Each structure stands twice: as structure tokens, then as C-alpha cells.
Simulated assay, not measured.
Amino acid sequence: MGILLTGGEAAAGAGSGIIMIVYLVLIGAFFYFFMIRPQKKEQKKMAAMLSTLEVGDCVLTNSGFYGIIIDITDDTVIVEFGNNKNCRIPMQKTAIAQVEKADAE
């Protein structure tokens, strides 16, 4: 047996559908402005920092070590740690957290 909707019930059903769409749009906007957009902004900032790396720059790695860049290739850098000139470690550019320019002194 089919149930027929009266005019008032049909309008209420259409109104709740529009409200649901509005809520979904608001939730999508929230995720974009508070999660996706800041992350992309941070990625652009990190890419700009890594593109300005030069030999002689002092860097802080993600593991917390400070070192001096002595060689740069496409996606890797060789970093010298401490006063001991024998401690040179190749690492990916993405492992660098901060850069302090050599001429900033």
C-alpha cells in the first residue's frame, strides 16, 4: 500500500534536503579552510625554504641535529655535524626542518 504525501509533508521533505546540502557545504568549507589550505601553505613554505639551500648554510634536521651543508644534489644534501670534519652524512632535503643562512651572521 502506497502512502501519499500531502502538500505540507512534501514541502517539509524538500526543505530538509536543502538544509542537508547546506550542512554538507558548510562542513566541506570548514575542512578546506581549517585543514587543507593551511597544510598546502606550509608545504609551499617548506618547498621555498628547500629551494634556497646553499653550501655553507647551517641547518637543523628533523632529528634535532645541527650541521653545515657541504654539498647539494637534486634531492640529497651532505651535512657535516660537529667540529669533527669526518662526520659527514648524506640525507634527503626533506629531512631539513630549519635553515639559517651563512651570511645572516
Rank of each mutant, 00 (worst) to 15 (best):
94 T>C: 05
48 A>M: 08
25 V>R: 09
96 I>M: 06
23 Y>S: 14
33 F>Q: 10
96 I>H: 03
64 G>D: 13
37 R>Y: 09
24 L>K: 02
31 F>N: 12
85 K>Q: 12
83 N>L: 13
64 G>M: 05
101 K>Q: 07
33 F>E: 06
72 I>E: 04
85 K>M: 14
85 K>N: 09
35 M>H: 12
74 D>Q: 10
52 T>I: 01
41 K>L: 11
22 V>K: 14
47 A>P: 01
76 T>C: 04
56 G>K: 00
83 N>V: 13
78 I>W: 02
79 V>Q: 00
101 K>P: 04
105 E>Y: 08
1 M>Q: 11
43 Q>H: 10
89 I>C: 12
51 S>L: 13
40 K>P: 00
95 A>R: 01
44 K>F: 08
63 S>A: 14
58 C>S: 13
102 A>I: 10
59 V>W: 02
57 D>I: 01
71 D>Y: 06
89 I>G: 06
95 A>P: 01
78 I>N: 05
59 V>M: 05
7 G>I: 06
98 Q>W: 02
59 V>I: 15
82 G>V: 07
70 I>V: 14
95 A>Q: 06
6 T>N: 14
68 I>C: 12
57 D>W: 02
23 Y>D: 06
34 F>T: 08
28 G>N: 09
57 D>Y: 04
89 I>P: 02
31 F>S: 05
74 D>Y: 04
10 A>P: 03
5 L>M: 09
88 R>E: 04
71 D>N: 15
60 L>F: 03
105 E>G: 11
34 F>H: 07
35 M>N: 09
31 F>C: 12
54 E>G: 10
74 D>M: 09
86 N>K: 10
96 I>Y: 01
104 A>L: 09
88 R>I: 00
77 V>N: 00
77 V>W: 00
82 G>S: 09
95 A>T: 04
70 I>K: 05
19 I>D: 11
16 S>L: 12
75 D>K: 12
25 V>H: 09
102 A>D: 07
86 N>I: 10
52 T>M: 09
42 E>D: 13
45 K>V: 07
99 V>C: 09
82 G>E: 02
53 L>R: 02
87 C>E: 07
59 V>G: 02
29 A>Y: 15
98 Q>D: 08
37 R>H: 11
19 I>T: 15
14 A>P: 01
46 M>D: 15
55 V>M: 01
75 D>W: 01
75 D>I: 05
5 L>C: 07
13 G>W: 02
54 E>L: 05
15 G>T: 05
53 L>V: 04
64 G>V: 03
104 A>F: 11
66 Y>M: 15
42 E>F: 10
39 Q>K: 07
37 R>W: 07
65 F>R: 13
49 M>D: 10
29 A>R: 15
6 T>M: 03
65 F>M: 12
83 N>C: 08
24 L>C: 11
55 V>W: 02
61 T>N: 04
103 D>G: 05
105 E>C: 08
34 F>D: 00
50 L>H: 15
103 D>A: 14
12 A>G: 05
